[in-house]
Design a binder for these strands. Sequence first.
DNA 1: TTGTATGCGTTATCAA
DNA 2: TTGATAACGCATACAA
Lengths: 344, 344
Amino acid sequence: MKYEAAKLKDISKVLGLSVSTISRALNDSYEISEKTKKLVREYAEKINYRPNPVAVSLREKRSRSIGVIIAEIANSFFSQMINGVESVAHAKGYNVIITQSLESYERELSNLEFLASRSVDGCLISVSTETKNFDHITRLHKRGFPFVCFDRIIDDIKTHKVSIDNFKGAYDATKELVKSGFKRIAMLGNAEHLSITQERLSGYKAALADAGLVFDESLIRYCLHGGMIYGEVEQAMNELMSLRKKPDTFFAASDKLTTNFVRYCKAKKISIPNKLGLVGFSNLDLTDLLTPALSVIRQPAFEMGEAAAELLIKLIEAKRPPADFENMVLPPELLIRGSSERKK
Amino acid sequence: MKYEAAKLKDISKVLGLSVSTISRALNDSYEISEKTKKLVREYAEKINYRPNPVAVSLREKRSRSIGVIIAEIANSFFSQMINGVESVAHAKGYNVIITQSLESYERELSNLEFLASRSVDGCLISVSTETKNFDHITRLHKRGFPFVCFDRIIDDIKTHKVSIDNFKGAYDATKELVKSGFKRIAMLGNAEHLSITQERLSGYKAALADAGLVFDESLIRYCLHGGMIYGEVEQAMNELMSLRKKPDTFFAASDKLTTNFVRYCKAKKISIPNKLGLVGFSNLDLTDLLTPALSVIRQPAFEMGEAAAELLIKLIEAKRPPADFENMVLPPELLIRGSSERKK
DNA sequence: TTGTATGCGTTATCAA
DNA sequence: TTGATAACGCATACAA
């Protein structure tokens, strides 16, 4: 079953004009008489003619579309971010092709390969947790394929970057827990090698230091899939909760870690914040409906999407590589709610 | 700035063979000698050659990609559904282009136009709440553009459809509330003209009738944006809660209606289920973490996505229109939790 | 077994 | 002001 759309040739035949005349008339070329333009336009309108974007792409060597590689659509941070990307892209006449890696290096690779093989003019990427080697990205980048990194940044690639101040987010979160009187603050982190994990770890450490608390390595656990899989959070929690000196509160460094921490506490009937306090990264707009409401670090996801798309399109449309690259760092927002309030 | 990828011509020049030989060698044609194939393959591998999908699309008159039009990515039902779509599509060598209408007819129209203008081989669609006229869809469909409808079904279009048993979902939800002893059951519905709304309304009515309760029109409120905007839910709730004979429980007929109902109760300090009971449609995997945990009707979103993608690809690859169309109706699942338990 | 020519739908160059 | 022709990258019918 095949859908046949109207093409220039069809119009050309009916109106008895050449294909090139039709093309020029529809593109409002100065070379064509008003009379002819009107005739052509009206007929094209009538049969609902639309230029074939595939042919235009081949001809113009650009597709007017951008690709996005994220970990998971069903993650509030990413879905909000995509809304920002779409709003800018559509306004500038670009389409957005979304692909998800599901935190798998293999999938990231094949998605990127598809996108880069000229289906899109450039790409926004937040690498998967599994990705430790960035050759697939740098290789393309060196050959001129436009990238903008966001969220999970790759350090040694020279291009525009959009992220949040992860250090500050973690610092503020930890400081808030300290302020509430918690002493043994554990951290659930995303994969250890990720830039966001390291920055958040630094913020956490700095806040401890400033509060005169000693940093205890044994209170740190990393989850290779960023908490996407409940089992990895469960295991990390089991380990931490069976320490001789148990933590009395948690800093959860990603969306899924935060919710799966709550899930764990619910399952084990651990009361928040009485038994364990919590501040976590989350962009879910349901965290305020939990009991207790969760204290969260919220990222300006929509704005990050807007900024990243803006930068990427600028890169695509630039005649030559820009002299310097933007490194946008947006501020996170700490929303203090019940889960970090020490009760006793 | 432009990214130039390798093409057949490049290989052809280097190896001193014609473009067609290269093409055939890479496509493993029987006409080419093993020796040549090996030579070509190795060099192609070395320079990381990938065929230009745009050129292939133009040539083959198909793009090996499918489009999806949904209301909103940041909606658990849709994002889970997309995961199902992607898993099937990728397995069959198709790419997925996602667009969101944000419940706007205008956006649905322009998204569809983009997708149909030969960027994709077919389309999965769940119409926006604003869409009352389906001409833009039926017009394309009549001209042979493959569609599969899911979730929000269009009745008068002859094609494959994937939905859930909305009647049963609503019936079970309402019956559960009746069983708990609630008497005045209000319904928050999506836009009135949607098929899902009508079916859910019927299920609700039938359950009332079977329980010997009278149907009271004044207890029904429709939200034109399916609860996506908090204000519309707030207004509906304000109206219902200022009735002389207030409802004592709610059936919320969509994801966003359910969560915004909870948000409203939290804001107004209305205790669930003591003051108001609730069963609502929701696919969020956080509803069990609320206090009380929410009783929800859960849709098999992932499976729906798989089924819809499967049917669409079958449609695309069929030589001619199938004699009859599938009308898949999957069962919803009622998860009974705290919010529908009558306490007093 | 390999090469040449053609066409997919569009736009741009050149000619009329 | 309009038309014929070439080109974008690829795959295939036809020639050799």
